[in-house]
Write a protein that binds this DNA or RNA. Structure first.
Lengths: 248, 248
DNA sequence: CGTGTTTTTGACTTCAGTCAATTAAAGTGG
DNA sequence: CCACTTTAATTGACTGAAGTCAAAAACACG
């Protein structure tokens, strides 16, 4: 019961970064039953309309959450990276309202939703930490509505690049000035509500203007400040915790 | 302590509709300290960057939550009506990431955030109900991202009309076939990521096509099914509870 | 009634989409 | 390691949905 399950240590670290946890809280988190699996792109975690039974913790790789509209177009509504919880949302609601799918090969720890619900209310500290995760996720959704609704192509793409760079750095996975972006231009398009063709032109323009320099599927940010300005990016909506702003 | 505060009865009803509450739960909810106030358009509840100290329960009227982007454009990210909680989000996070403002004159009960946090974890039933509210709100955000990102003008506007009509009916405030929509075309535009001019043309087209019939600021839905089809609207994302789909 | 919104209309612009072809990269199997 | 296939990125020409600007009409209201 109380034994160590190293797979859940990233989860513990994540929760503890926002709310102080005592020894019992930590033990309870690490004792959560779980199964580790590796998924490939196309192997959905959950599909819209299904019942989600597990919540997933990303151990490596990237995951997207998306919706399909009437005409068949896809809109990505969230991107998750190592250390993120994927789908506290679907897994707490009765029926999934969107699809969840790996973007890259992804190692994931699945935790049964009932266990998570239980620990959430049995251990208020853990509950507050989970609540916080949900709230920050909500904040990101709001920012995305604004991004897609009221920014032009260049701003949208720049904003997405900033968000991913910032989150990667905040998670200790990369530096904002040089990170891997494992998304095709098609996928970027579906995240920012544009066409792949237009995303291509926009990325090339950012490059030409010296804000970024791309090589295959990684992005080097040549000038973070200018990119952030171009994307109207401010990290406030990510509700950063302890660490101050990442090195620019 | 345990005495009745009739103002919070809508809150109790709302919570009880999703999770069974026992007598103590109910008493605790009704005993929450609160202050009732009436706000007018322009009197913000909270502004981005401020610290929210209270959570608001709508007793009457409409409220919007919005963000302002670099170029000064506004994006509405949520609309709230009688019976809704406004801003569990801002009030649980340290710093507000968006603005909250009445759309019409609005009567509101303010509950201190600490009280709400406390009851959330002291009374798991209440906690689950609040969690559910948050999750459904999150689902609506996701739908809005898809609406603004991947639907054209007609679909967006029709979808918004359907959402509002459906929610009003679900809350027992109106029928989907005839409800008051207290938004100017400017505000509708800011909710769906279009221009007021284009919203005007779109609304007129819906009218001309016999899906709606407008008079000043109320909407009569002439053909709910066609409007729902035009807006790619399905109530799944609202995670309706007990009552089946509203009368069409 | 006059004044300030809000809605409506028209003419014109533009950003982003569409279609289609080309090039480049990444695998795959022999 | 090289043809062979597939997927992704790039480019160009053209289209179109939505934006812009500006003015007129219709309301709302003190």
């Amino acid at each position: 019961m109380g034994q160590n399950h190293p797979a859940l240590e990233p989860l513990l670290a994540r929760l503890a970064s926002r709310v102080a946890l005592d020894a019992d809280d930590c033990a309870a988190v690490l004792a959560l039953p779980h199964a580790v699996r590796t998924l490939k792109p196309g192997e959905h975690f959950v599909r819209e309309g299904e019942k989600a039974t597990h919540c997933a913790l990303m151990l490596s790789g990237f995951t997207i959450r998306h919706k399909i509209v009437a005409r068949g177009a896809r809109q990505i509504v969230a991107i998750h990276m190592t250390g993120d919880f994927v789908d506290l949302q679907n897994s707490f609601l009765a029926i999934a309202d969107h699809n969840v799918e790996p973007l890259t090969a992804a190692k994931v720890a699945f935790v049964p939703r009932e266990e998570l619900r239980t620990i959430m209310f049995d251990r208020p500290n853990v509950g507050r930490a989970l609540l916080n995760e949900l709230l920050v996720e909500g904040s990101v959704f709001r920012e995305w509505i604004a991004n897609v609704g009221r920014r032009d192509a260049r701003e949208r793409v720049a904003h997405l690049l900033c968000e991913i760079g910032y989150r990667l750095e905040a998670a200790g996975l990369a530096r904002t000035c040089d990170f891997e972006l494992p998304m095709t231009q098609d996928q970027i398009a579906d995240a920012v509500g544009l066409t792949a063709v237009h995303v291509n032109r926009t990325l090339m323009a950012l490059d030409a203007d010296g804000l970024t320099s791309r090589t295959k599927r990684s992005v080097k940010v040549a000038d973070w400040q200018r990119l952030a300005d171009a994307g109207d990016f401010s990290e406030l909506y990510l509700h950063p915790v302890e660490s101050p702003a990442p090195v620019k």
